[in-house]
Design a protein around this nucleic acid. Sequence first.
DNA 1: AGGCGAGCAATTGGATCCATTGCAACTCGG
DNA 2: CCGAGTTGCAATGGATCCAATTGCTCGCCT
Lengths: 223, 223
Amino acid sequence: MIQAADEPAPAGVASRRIADHVRAQILAGELEPGTRIRQDDLARELAASRLPVREALRILETAGLVTLHANRGAWVTRLDQRDCEQSYQIRERIEPLLLRESAPLLTAEDLAELDRLQVAIESTDDVEQFLVLDRQLHWTTYRHAEARELVAIIERLWDTTQHYRRAFSRIAHERRRWIIDAEHRLLIQALRDGDVEEAERVLEMHIRRTRVELQAHPEVFSS
Amino acid sequence: MIQAADEPAPAGVASRRIADHVRAQILAGELEPGTRIRQDDLARELAASRLPVREALRILETAGLVTLHANRGAWVTRLDQRDCEQSYQIRERIEPLLLRESAPLLTAEDLAELDRLQVAIESTDDVEQFLVLDRQLHWTTYRHAEARELVAIIERLWDTTQHYRRAFSRIAHERRRWIIDAEHRLLIQALRDGDVEEAERVLEMHIRRTRVELQAHPEVFSS
DNA sequence: AGGCGAGCAATTGGATCCATTGCAACTCGG
DNA sequence: CCGAGTTGCAATGGATCCAATTGCTCGCCT
């Protein structure tokens, strides 16, 4: 092995790397729902052949992030309002399960990090930053959960709805942010108190409220 | 086009076909958790090259049915008792959502089919037959639901736990079957009455009871 | 005799090449 | 001038070939 560690490191299998890359692009909003993904372009962009690209697209299709049409190509999956609300409804019911498993194992360091993240959330005006930090905050509360299936499912739900969360934040963030902040603080406090049931209730309410507000903004899905 | 329609027809994309084939084999119990899947063998068996096989394996990995280790190969995913219980806990919370959406749209024909299926279930002693019919029955009740995400998630949960449901049925079916039959009949009756809430409650109870009974049989996961 | 290392076989991962499909523009006829 | 059919191109799907990694076995040294 001549080249040691100056390269960004192949880091595992190419198809996985490519899938992660595209996933990140979609989550970052660089690829919006409905945009076409061309195999050649991706391959050139990532300096790989089309073969791992195709595998990556199949992975992402199963993950629900892209939609494939036989002999026609791949597009970033577009959700309608109904699908999106349904996703939130599912999260509302199962994320408390994840929290229940993780909450009792949270350390003082975890709680400190939650505080830090919440302060950061309250002091940013950038939507993109907010999305990243919000996600970090919630997944920090889930850090000690070991339920693989549950984690996979919930990550999928976060992923497929990310774009609509962004669109929604863009138009309603100013008005909503103090509510979100309050809910986050209630969640963190319940966790600090070791009151898991209360934390579950707050989380469920947090997700439901977002879902209900989303109902009132169909323009998010119109484009 | 020389060869017209004597072939079984490619019928869509090969990778999808192969993935479905392997999925069916796993669900039928022909491939048990832990068994290795070799790319060459699959390719030969299905008269295809290894390329679509690889794509299929990536699909199935994302679907949670096989586990890939880089440069080492693919194995049918093995769940531990904790994972399996968690899957049932998730189903318990979200399948009622699917039922709620579908139940009001069930037709008289659907109800007749449910009766027919239930009669068939009660008159079979074959575990394999039972698994197929039970699955058909529940998915008939979900027939009119259109929530894509929810359907995908629940199918995944059924798929990944199928093997353990089989193992459990093998050892505890005699003792349990009258309970299952009773619950199915209650479910169908509630649907016939148009009492969706009652149907949801019965379904939740049905899944929870299975989960709790599974807790008492760790030997299912020992092999 | 046991453990460690090197070499080899088997299997997976990746690249290039060819076939097939779908789309679009252009042409020809009404 | 408009519509339908045909032809050509571009993008995906599939097969074969080659490289890289793994782990297993055999042999050697301690």
